[in-house]
Nucleic acid binder design. Structure first.
Length: 659
DNA sequence: AAAACGGGCTTTTTT
DNA sequence: AGCCCGTTTT
């Protein structure tokens, strides 16, 4: 009855799709083997068998992947399925069940920047300097602890040295503050859901009965908290499908535990295991390079990718004089491809660290090639966007002191350091929120008359906006706010290029708002804030527009492009020395997997390059070529330098695009 | 007391 | 490019 669900599948793929829905299934899917296809078809197949769509939960790594998968399922069976990231899924559960574990109904999400602000406040109160305890270091420790489901007190018990004890005290304070503010951070979303399911057996069972079929993508990159969440949900019916590739596990530094996938068969008795090694993406040269590279990893299960796309063109290795030479070579090749009819969205540049993007930006701008950097200085990290967002957050959540404090004197309204100190002192003594403190500012005698007036005016303005939430659209709200605060007018008055750029970003922000409001919920301010707090740069990236894409190798996972330039293959940069810590061997293997991910993104042609001298982080480094280059079979490479002769075009192009 | 300015530092990867 | 911090200007 539903032939289209089973057409164009190879035997392994078909087996994975039709594997009984009642049984656990592990699909070890090599790069480019049709992983997404299996998941969507399997979901469609479930529904064709009469399994209701509302009993299915699909989990992917990014919102973009989730959207893509929803779209494909919709096309196959014309039904909507709940497919989202772990974070979004847990958020939805907590919105329903939060009060059962003491979460306020209107809890807000604190992103990593908010976390940092909060940690800095904690340090101040505990009299630690930022030299003693680096805020970012503390944040990382806290995030890792949450990935492992540790409470601050459990973390404290496990400390082994004075530094960790210090972090533990910060963690305790941080958690207190967060609770008081009615906030949860990213890690909390998963952690609290697990906590809920641990404590409330009834709630757990209700969700188990509701979501009887669970499918997880990129299972090799799940952390312990996510693993527990899945295990809780799946433990009653054990109707779980996981798909992943241990060779593409690249988030160990973020708490991902490769053992989750390696131990799946032990966790779920009678599970089916299906290996998919046929690759539909890349020609043999690229698969050969990928296979050869990854075999240098000692801790892995054997696997060999093979394809039917033909030999393909050799990988070009470019030996650059310096980073400028490297960038100019890459852009030159891109222009050559453009002349041959390739579009910019068919090509991409991958690098190990964001800092490498600068030189490419310079050269691309000069060449007038439109480009988009995914990640890096994210749109939502820009000062002006953070300011406006803080306004919206402060209006939407009166308890959000962090946001309110950010905008208290932005733009300048005469509420400086001293005034803030007085306000905070009053706040502490009276146990108030910052908003309530502002309301009662006239009770603080030390505050000058002019400052007190300024504070009251500010508070009055915020209160005024709060009353209009829901009555007017988010766009109108922000427009009125910008008008009242003269935020844009003040930027215009600067008459600088920088200010111009900021105004453009604000316009871009309005189009984000419009996109949200067109989806139906006009005026839903909390909904808008929530939607962007879980979105990443990648989620808004549009692969359809004719623009060149630049991104880190981490962001490239799951994507594919006909032509790929992997740059900066130098010892120290990639593998990255900073990534090699105590468990150097394991971490080196993760770097190698990252390289493997990069190579296997190429659908037709791959370029690798390194520079003999590179200016980065303000100094000039003379790096040796990456060890990964020597791990590739020499016969798959053709080496070029800026002095080597251009080869004839016709012997260079020998790719068989049709097969 | 607030604002403006300049120097120094920062970056490994991010849901 | 942003943030912190010390110094100078308003």
């Amino acid at each position: 009855m539903s032939d289209h669900i089973l057409t164009d599948l190879n035997p392994a793929q078909k087996e994975a799709v039709v594997w009984p829905a009642e049984k656990p299934l592990l699909v070890l899917a090599g790069a480019g083997s049709g992983k997404t296809r299996i998941l969507t078809r399997r979901i469609a197949h479930f529904m064709a068998q009469g399994i209701p769509s509302f009993s299915i939960l699909g989990v992917t790594f990014t919102n973009k992947a989730a959207e893509e998968m929803r779209k494909r399922v919709r096309k196959l069976v014309r039904q909507e399925v709940w497919i989202s990231t772990f974070h979004s899924a847990c958020l939805r559960i907590l919105r329903e069940e939060g009060p059962a574990i003491g979460l306020p109904k209107d809890f807000t999400i604190y992103d990593d920047h908010d976390q940092l602000v909060l940690i800095k406040e904690c340090l101040k109160e505990l009299n630690y300097t930022e030299k003693q305890c680096h805020p970012k270091g503390a944040r990382e420790a806290i995030q890792r602890a949450k990935d492992y489901l540790l409470t601050p007190y459990q973390y404290q018990e496990r400390t082994t040295d004075p530094y960790e004890e210090m972090v533990a005290r910060v963690f305790v304070k941080y958690e207190e503050k967060l609770t008081r503010l009615g906030g949860v951070d990213f890690g909390d979303l998963i952690l609290k859901a697990v906590f809920l399911f641990d404590r409330k057996a009834k709630a757990l069972e209700a969700w188990q009965d509701r979501l009887r079929h669970i499918l997880i993508d990129e299972y090799q990159d799940t952390n312990h908290a996510q693993y527990r969440f899945v295990k809780q949900l799946a433990s009653k019916y054990k109707q779980i499908t996981v798909v992943g590739d241990p060779d593409q596990s690249i988030y160990g530094w973020r708490g991902a535990d490769i053992h989750n996938i390696l131990n799946f068969e032990k966790d779920y008795a009678d599970s089916g295991v299906i290996k998919m090694e046929q690759n539909y993406r890349s020609p043999d040269v690229i698969l050969g390079a990928a296979n050869a590279l990854i075999q240098h990893n000692e801790f892995r299960k054997p696997k060999l990718l093979w394809g039917e796309k033909g030999k393909g063109e050799r990988i070009t290795l470019y030996e650059a004089v310096d980073e400028k030479d490297e960038a100019e070579f890459v852009i030159g090749e891109i222009q050559k491809y453009q002349r041959e009819g390739r579009t910019l969205n068919e090509m991409a540049i991958f690098y190990r660290v964001h800092a490498q993007s600068r030189i490419f930006e310079d050269v691309l701008r000069r060449a007038k090639i439109p480009y988009k950097i995914v990640g890096g200085i994210r749109f939502y990290d820009r000062k002006e966007i953070k300011d406006l967002l803080a306004y919206l957050k402060a209006i939407a959540s009166p308890r959000d002191d962090v946001s309110l404090k950010r905008i208290l004197n932005v733009p300048h309204r005469g509420i400086g350091k001293k005034a803030l100190e007085l306000l905070e002192e009053f706040q502490r003594k009276q146990h108030l929120s910052l908003s309530e403190t502002l309301h009662r500012a006239k009770e603080i005698s030390e505050l000058g008359a002019r400052t007190a007036k300024s504070v009251q005016d500010f508070h009055g303005m915020i209160e005024g906006f709060r009353k209009r939430v829901g009555k007017i659209s988010v766009r109108e709200l922000l427009e009125k706010m910008i008008e009242k605060t003269e935020y844009v007018d003040l930027l215009k008055a600067e008459h600088t290029i920088e200010a111009e750029a900021r105004i453009e970003n604000i316009e871009e922000f309005f189009s984000v708002i419009d996109d949200f409001e067109e989806m139906g919920q006009e005026g839903d301010l909390p909904g808008f804030i929530e939607s962007i707090s879980l979105f990443t740069d990648l989620d808004t990236w549009d692969s359809g527009t004719n623009t060149l894409t630049l991104m880190t190798l981490h962001m490239a996972k799951g994507l594919e492009f006909p032509v790929i330039f992997m740059v900066g293959l130098e010892a120290g940069l990639f593998p990255n020395f900073n990534a090699l810590g105590r468990e150097a061997e394991e971490e080196l293997e993760e770097e190698r997997r990252l390289c493997y991910v990069g190579i296997t993104r190429a659908q037709a042609k791959l370029y690798l390059s390194y520079a003999n001298s590179r200016r980065i982080y303000g100094t000039v480094a003379h790096n040796l070529p990456s060890r990964f280059l020597t791990e590739l079979p020499a016969e798959l490479l053709e080496t070029r330098t800026r002095f080597s002769k251009e080869e004839d075009e016709d012997c260079e192009i020998e790719i068989d695009y049709d097969s």
